[in-house]
């Protein structure tokens, strides 16, 4: 790994997770306040996160195994916010019925 590739890889990794977090936050705040614009901005973050993941896969000198891991966790960042949200909603409506 060249020195530049090393710094670039580390920063891409950080940016990837940060953008994934941006998606999760904007998506959930958007859902909460019923603001489709925020959800769309969240989607943009997700695309950016996937872009960073793709860049890591294509352009960094990481070994293949790690690249697969990055791909899989990219799917995780995409799936978790809506999944968790739906799950919490289900839990909550169940809770209300019980009360």
């Amino acid at each position: 790994m060249t020195p530049t590739a090393f710094v670039a890889t580390a920063l891409l990794m950080g940016a990837f997770v940060l953008a994934g977090g941006g998606y999760g936050s904007l998506y959930s705040v958007g859902r909460l306040q019923g603001r489709p614009r925020l959800i769309r901005m969240g989607a943009v973050c997700l695309v950016v996160a996937l872009g960073f993941a793709a860049a890591i896969v294509v352009a960094t000198p990481l070994a293949v195994g790690w690249k697969i891991l990055i791909g899989v966790s990219a799917a995780g960042y995409a799936a978790i916010p809506p999944l968790v949200w739906r799950y919490l909603e289900q839990l909550h409506s169940g809770g209300r019925a019980m009360r």
Partner: peptide
Amino acid sequence: LGMVVHAVYDA
């Protein structure tokens, strides 16, 4: 990340 979504939901 799941915890972030949860925190927003609860708020």
